[in-house]
Design a protein around this nucleic acid. Structure first.
Length: 914
RNA sequence: GCCGAAAUGGCGGAACUGGUAGACGCGACGGACUCAAAAUCCGUUUCUGGCGACAGAGUGUCGGUUCGAUUCCGACUUUCGGCACCA
């Protein structure tokens, strides 16, 4: 007897059984495989594809649960939803694992993919697995090679030298993350900069379009758009030529502040600049300085934070306007790859130039003052200016004084300004020119134009738009990546591999030691013939940046079996309606993604200008860290699972001890889950303990999607309790038998109130999930409704009918979050085994939302003093009268004069008195 | 260094368009059930004072706008993300 009961609807919630049953049903019915269907609105929901690192981590769980919630929600809205999944399978970790475990990167990668695919299935994500993409497969990367060769023919690809991190001991190129404190991670040797030839994609040719396109993306977060705008870094300025002693060619510099030209006190060039190298030939000190600039890595963060150092070349340049000589310095913060590799320095009006001038005792000349200086001088000269119609600003700063006393006073004002500014560094604001000869008195814009015009007429300068963004370097000196489809011929030079010879396949069954790429080491692989002249030639052995694969996978999902990069199906699905991924991709990946879409468009492969209309960037998953300092100064990190937290009587944390020995450990704060801090929580363990639905629900409930999420197992238990309660509520209701339809006309007050809350909840959850993407508050609203339902003690036929309506709505509303539970409970509510996604979404009954009365807050002088119930139809005057009649309000108003009353209907009455 | 975010009870968070700060969950405390425990259920829970009605304080810090500011503006502090070869 007892057994039968346990297995019945009353038997309680067993996540593993519920989840296996639902997943079996989805699998057998191929529920989430989709096709193009012109009769239904499409919805393409895409989560960034994962790197197959070995096992699912909490960051994945969060990212992919968000995508699944949105996908299932949209399917319930009747959309034809595409939600695909694939693997960003090339990359550095496979090489590292290969060295460590002595396996081939390919084997390791494929094993990881198998394992992670099973884990994804266990989470119940509604993917169309028939569209799975694996970027390390030749059938994927051949199209990327084809695109590259086409771009070569279009002139959008070129080869030039650029700097890499070079480990002089291991004789290898290092990634930025492999450079730690300027040293190689394995060898410990000081890393050097080295120039090697590399392939570049001309993203700068699309810079303006990438910038303008941001204005067409209202569905992207402002933070991402701002970061991209700043990264593109459009600036309008002037390229100015300085003659250099002993050089035939003038030195070009770019500046956005030509108004400060008269304040130039030196010119600085990069260590690799031809002028510097030439000067160093006869100057050992300079040669040594240039050599010292080679130490250290190439990352911008490292370059920008290193000490600013310089060395005089001994060469002088000529100021294009004054003809004065200015020294040419080499500076380690000027980079050959940025702009012209040379800058004009105005220490009076640029902080970095100011620091440099201070350090090397170079002259500082101020040529811009602010409005207060102009006003002060204008004041002194007012008597003179009045009547003769002269511009007081020009007169004050440059017009020449006819009165010695006033001229001296003006000089004092300027001196005081200079002194005040020099205390804190350069004056970098726009202002009015002085000390600038014929340009004195002009304001920024006018000065810019006047100086530009003058230099242009002299042939010494050109107006130019400069971009911060540099072309995309796609060459990597690594094995585990897509081979760059180029052949080097001694006579024909670099030739693209003909399309009928693609793909250039990367051999997968290789021995990999880590020192050299197997395809670089194998002369046989390199050997080929020139497609142009048929002579002996060699293949390129560099591989692509892995951002190349992740820049177009979204398009391949639409036509995974096409005998082309994509086919016409792309235009049914694209653009992506919702893209979801980490904020860490805000610039690089998302810019390359937008760029590549325009390349596809210009190849005639897609019709849209942007790849994704809406973007959601989710926060990180973080957890507490605990550690002990060891005798040697290193730290040992303990998993939060092994630590017990101690609290005082107010439940504030006062310490923590290790469970195994009871001795204290230090609390290290909350950080991103990582192996190094040992604070990772394994999703697999959590799924085993609580089930996938609980894990999904917690990861959506604990924080808004765009903020960081703190993992907390007690919170997970709370979610589990909620699902058990829901299960019990639905089961016991269903056990009591079928219900009649709700008769809206004959509801009592309690039934009406519950029904109002039900429809308010439907409204809120629809808005929270559909528009606001505020999943945590949607879940909270469902919990509130379910709490109200628990207190709704009404077993009458009408009461049971209302309860049936509410429970059915909850099961549908919670389905995007906990699809397995909904799948089971939908059957318990008497619907047979069907797809809840196709059962639709509850509709709001507007008539159920009507209220008879409203609660208003009553403030006196902005402080809350009472709340009042007013009829929904009450006028402002009636609300004010009721507020004044409230005893606590009347008491406070006694003897006071009411100066103002603000009534916001439905919200507040504020009485200002005093 | 530069660019972009964030900061609210003991904790995670809510307050959507400037209108009752603390929804929902966790934890803690009290109670019910139980021989007992677990599970479950009910109640209390921002801080200070007060038996209470109530009063005072309070959204990182300092200042401003407003009848009214977690919300808008200015300055600052701390933490996090990115900085072109981690993905």
């Amino acid at each position: 007897m007892q057994d039968t009961q346990d297995q019945g609807a009353q038997g309680g919630y067993v996540p593993s059984a519920v989840e296996a049953a639902a997943q079996r049903y989805w699998n057998e019915t191929r529920a989430f495989e989709v096709r193009e269907d012109s009769t239904r609105p499409k919805y393409y929901c895409l989560s960034m594809l994962p790197y197959p690192s070995g096992a699912l981590h909490m960051g994945h769980v969060r990212n992919y649960t968000i995508g699944d919630v949105i996908s299932r929600f949209q399917r319930q809205q009747g959309k034809n939803v595409l939600q695909p999944m694939g693997w960003d399978a090339f990359g550095l970790p496979a090489e590292n694992a290969a060295i460590k475990n002595n396996t081939a990167p390919a084997k390791w990668t494929y094993k990881n993919i198998e394992h992670m695919r099973e884990q994804f299935k266990r989470m119940g994500f509604a993917y169309d697995w028939t569209r799975e993409v694996t970027t390390c497969r030749p059938e994927y990367y051949r199209w990327e090679q084809q695109m590259f060769t086409r771009l070569m023919k279009k002139g959008l690809v070129y080869r030039k030298n650029s700097v890499v991190n070079w480990d002089p001991v291991d004789q290898t190129v290092l990634a930025n993350e492999q450079v730690i404190d300027g040293k190689g991670w394995r060898s410990g040797a000081v890393v050097e900069k080295r120039e090697i030839p590399q392939w570049f994609l001309k993203i700068t040719a699309y810079a303006q379009e990438l910038l303008d396109g941001l204005d067409t993306l209202p569905g992207w977060p402002d933070a991402v758009k701002t970061m991209q705008r700043n990264w593109l870094g459009r600036s309008e300025g002037l390229e100015i030529q300085f003659d250099v002693d002993g050089e035939a060619e003038p030195l070009s510099v770019f500046t956005t502040r030509p108004d400060t030209l008269m304040g130039v006190s030196y010119v600085a060039v990069a260590a690799e600049h031809p002028i510097a190298i030439k000067a160093a030939a006869s100057n050992p000190g300079l040669a040594e300085f240039i050599a010292s600039c080679r130490a250290g890595g190439v990352s911008e963060a490292e370059l920008e934070t290193q000490e600013k150092r310089g060395y005089f070349t001994g060469v002088e340049a000529t100021h294009p306007l004054t003809g004065e000589k200015v020294p040419v310095w080499v500076a380690n913060f000027v980079l050959m790859g940025y702009g012209t590799g040379a800058v004009m320095a105005v220490p009076g009006h640029d902080e970095r130039d100011w620091e440099f001038a201070q350090k090397y005792s170079l002259p500082i000349k101020m040529v811009v003052v602010d409005r207060t200086v102009v006003d002060a001088i204008a004041e002194l000269r007012r008597d003179l200016a009045a009547g003769d119609g002269a511009d007081p600003v020009n007169l004050a700063l440059g017009g020449g004084s006819t009165d010695a006393y006033q001229a001296n006073a003006a000089v004092e004002v300027v001196k005081a300004f200079e002194a005040a500014v020099q205390d804190t560094g350069a004056y970098t604001e726009h202002g009015f020119l002085f000390n600038s000869g014929e340009f004195d008195g002009l304001e920024f814009r006018a000065a810019f134009d006047a100086i530009a015009a003058k230099l242009e007429s002299m042939g010494r300068g050109q107006r130019r738009v400069n971009w911060r963004i540099r072309d995309w370097g796609v060459s990597r000196q690594r094995y585990w990546g897509c081979p760059i489809p180029v052949i080097y011929c001694p006579t024909c030079e670099a030739v693209p591999v003909p399309e009928d010879q693609l793909p250039v396949v990367l051999p997968e069954d290789v021995a990999f030691s880590g020192v050299q790429s197997p395809i670089k080491a194998d002369p046989e692989w390199r050997k080929t013939t020139c497609p142009k002249c048929g002579g002996a030639a060699e293949r390129e052995t560099d591989t692509f940046d892995t951002f190349m694969e992740s820049s177009w996978y979204y398009a391949r999902y639409t036509s995974p079996d096409a005998n082309a990069q994509v086919d016409e199906r792309a235009n049914y699905w694209l653009p992506v309606d919702q893209y979801i991924g980490g904020i860490e991709h805000a610039i690089l990946h998302l810019l390359y993604f937008r760029f590549y879409h325009k390349l596809l468009r210009d190849e005639g492969l897609v019709g849209s200008d942007e790849p994704a209309t809406n973007l959601l960037c989710q926060g990180m998953v973080i957890a507490d860290t605990y550690f002990r300092k060891e005798a040697d100064g290193s730290s040992t990190w303990f998993n939060p699972d092994d630590v017990e937290v101690q609290r005082d009587e107010r439940a504030r944390i006062v310490g923590a001890v290790l469970r195994s020995d009871g001795k204290p450990v230090e609390i290290g704060g909350v950080e991103k889950m990582s192996k190094s801090k040992n604070n990772g929580v394994d999703p697999q363990l959590m799924i085993g303990k609580y089930g996938a639905d609980t894990v999904r629900l917690f990861s959506m409930f604990a924080a808004p999607p765009d903020q960081s999420l703190e993992w907390n197992e007690a919170g997970v238990e709370g979610m589990s309790r909620f699902l058990k309660r829901l299960w019990r509520d639905v089961s016991s209701h269903a056990e009591a038998g079928a219900t009649q339809a709700v008769d809206v006309a004959s509801l009592d007050a309690g039934q009406k109130t519950l029904r109002r809350q039900l429809h308010e909840t439907i409204q809120k959850v629809t808005d929270d999930v559909g528009r606001r993407q505020s999943f945590n508050t949607a879940i909270a609203a469902l919990m509130e409704l379910s709490n109200a339902l628990a207190k709704f003690d009404d077993a009458s036929p009408q009461g049971r009918a209302v309860r049936q309506e509410a429970l059915a709505a909850i099961v549908k509303l919670i389905n995007p979050f906990t699809p397995h539970v909904s799948h089971a409970l939908w059957q318990v509510l008497g619907h047979g085994e069907t797809l809840v996604e196709d059962a639709g979404w509850p509709a709001v009954d507007q008539s159920a939302l009507v209220r008879d009365s409203l609660t208003l807050a009553v403030q006196v002088n902005g402080k809350l003093r009472a709340t009042i119930e007013v009829p929904a139809a009450a006028s402002k005057e009636e609300a004010e009268a009721m507020a004044r009649a409230e005893p606590n309000v009347a008491r406070l108003l006694e003897g006071q004069t009411v100066r103002k009353v603000i009534v916001v209907p439905g919200k507040i009455v504020n009485i200002v008195a005093g």
